[in-house]
Computed example of a mutant assay.
Amino acid sequence: MAEIVNKTALIVGSGPGISASVARALAGQGYRLALAARNPDKLRDLAAETGAATFEVDASSPAAVSQLFKDAQDAIGLPEVVLYNAAGRLRGPLEALDPETVRRVLEVSAYGGFLVAQQAAKRLVPLARGAILLTGATASVKGFANSAAFAIGKFGLRGLAQSAARELAPKGVHVAHFVIDGAVRSAERPDPATAPDSTLDPDAIAQTYLAVLAQPRSAWTWEVELRPYVEVF
């Protein structure tokens, strides 16, 4: 496995859903957590539940991401598991998209992932251990109509993951990308009564994140796809 000596984790792009479920799962394994979001106020309940430290961050700012890692290390120790879960979404016909808004979406979805992965690599490569986890989507591998900006960002994040995995795995750092191929269940978006288990349970998703962290290094995966059993792909 990607040896995790101190059981410390930083989740960037924290909120309800996948990141919250992963945070709870890691806390259940005894991890000390740092949670970062553009609006850390929304993390208050999760932080109280998991004992996490919380931080405000603009993931598209190199200076802010660098400072985040310094602050997180002061709070919990050097993060040996780093999860990037932030994404920018924008829908609309290609000819009508606002270029500045598209730029911002790409900064969050892909550039922010690069900044976080870079800061993590700087700290983990000298240790020859740890893991960098990146959350993707259906759009990581399939560009839908009226979703160009999201597809560009998620394709870019997947490319980062593939390149980083090839570069860092031989140095002892496990890089993994998770294609979340389907809608994620939430209180606001429950399964229809007529179609149980037709969305992804975030707690079930978190089990796979932890399973990947536990993989022996002789059989690491750089990517895993997750979808409900009824999802067409």
Rank of each mutant, 00 (worst) to 15 (best):
V179P: 03
L94H: 11
P99A: 10
T101D: 14
Q119N: 12
V184P: 01
L106P: 01
V116R: 00
G153C: 03
P170S: 14
I152V: 10
E100N: 14
V212S: 06
D181H: 09
A219K: 12
A195M: 14
A176C: 14
V82K: 07
V108F: 03
A128R: 15
I132Q: 10
A137L: 03
E188F: 05
Q118Y: 08
W222S: 13
D98L: 08
V141Q: 13
R89F: 12
A176S: 08
S163D: 08
R189M: 14
G156Y: 01
P79D: 12
R91E: 14
S147M: 11
P216S: 11
P93L: 09
V141W: 06
A169I: 06
E80R: 07
R104W: 05
E95M: 11
L157S: 05
A183R: 11
S163K: 02
R104T: 04
G182H: 09
A204L: 10
E167I: 04
N146H: 10
A131T: 00
A96K: 14
A145R: 15
F114A: 12
G77Q: 12
F155I: 01
Q162I: 04
S147A: 14
A149V: 01
F155H: 15
Q118D: 14
P93E: 15
D197A: 10
Y209D: 07
G92Q: 11
F114D: 11
R89G: 02
R91Q: 13
I180K: 07
P79H: 08
A183D: 15
D98Q: 14
A219N: 15
P99E: 11
R91P: 04
G130L: 08
L134H: 04
V108G: 05
